[in-house]
Computed example of a mutant assay.
Amino acid sequence: GRTAPAQPEVAAAAPPKPEPKAEAGAPPPRGGARFLWPVKGKLISGYGPKPDGLHNDGLNIAASKGTAVVAADNGVVAYAGNELRGFGNLLLLKHADGWITAYAHLDRIDVERGATVKRGQAVGKVGQTGSVSSPQLHFELRKGSQAVDPTDQMDRKSIEGAFRDGPLGPG
């Protein structure tokens, strides 16, 4: 058999190949014990059962179209697209310890799949995409595949600024 001549100088000069974008890497360590509020606005629908028999797996926060949406914590973009019916432009961030945050109805997504994002980094803009009738952010917090009430895991210091009409009430 024939062998190709060795070219050590070419191999040594070639930079290491980056991982392909489609493979989201391991998320960086969390930036804090609690998650940041992703947008400032008015809470229009909280987590839990609704009178119409439906269940909200997250929070719906009304905000002006184009308002910046920030990453709730350090993470890796696991999904950025609009294939999930009803959610419009949807962004999923994978965080350490099995956490996932979802940001739906975005007007624009400003990060690509596989990108690493920092806590508080702008990742998109509030929109009116999917099945909503007004500009808003649908925000979900998941531990694995299980939806978790975000208000129990959010930074209390930032809650007062998150809602123009004051902090959340008991219901």
Rank of each mutant, 00 (worst) to 15 (best):
I100A: 09
G88A: 12
V111S: 01
A71L: 09
A68N: 12
G98H: 03
V123L: 08
V123E: 03
L59Y: 14
N60D: 15
I100C: 03
R85K: 15
H95Q: 00
G114M: 09
A78Q: 14
A63R: 04
L93W: 11
L90Q: 07
R85G: 10
I61P: 09
L93Y: 11
A72H: 11
Q121N: 08
Y79F: 15
E83D: 13
N82W: 00
A63Y: 03
Y79Q: 07
F87I: 03
V70R: 15
D97G: 00
L93P: 14
G81H: 08
G98Y: 10
L84F: 10
F87T: 04
H95W: 08
Y103L: 08
A63L: 03
W99I: 01
A104E: 07
F87M: 10
Y79P: 13
A104Y: 09
G127A: 11
R113D: 05
G81D: 07
G114C: 09
K118S: 15
A122I: 01
H105P: 13
T116V: 15
G124D: 07
I61Y: 12
A104F: 12
Q128F: 06
A115L: 04
H105M: 09
G130R: 00
Q121S: 10
T101W: 05
V77H: 02
V76C: 04
D110V: 02
I61H: 06
K65G: 08
Y103G: 10
I100Q: 12
G88F: 02
G86N: 08
A78E: 13
T116D: 01
V69T: 01
S64Q: 14
S64P: 10
G88K: 06
H105Y: 13
T101A: 06
G86K: 08
D73H: 07
L91D: 02
L106D: 12
A63H: 11
V76G: 01
L84A: 12
A122M: 14
L90A: 07
R85F: 05
V126M: 13
N82E: 11
G81M: 03
G124H: 11
H105K: 09
N60G: 08
A96P: 00
G127F: 12
L91N: 05
T116L: 01
Y103M: 07
V70A: 11
R119W: 13
R113Y: 00
Q121C: 05
N74W: 11
E112R: 13
K65A: 13
D110R: 04
G98A: 02
V111I: 13
A96W: 06
N89S: 10
L106I: 04
A68Q: 11
V123W: 04
A104I: 08
L92C: 05
T101H: 10
R119C: 04
G86H: 06
G88D: 12
V126G: 13
N60P: 03
A80M: 05
D107Q: 14
D107M: 03
F87S: 05
R119D: 04
H95C: 00
V76R: 05
K94T: 02
D73G: 14
V76Q: 01
A122G: 05
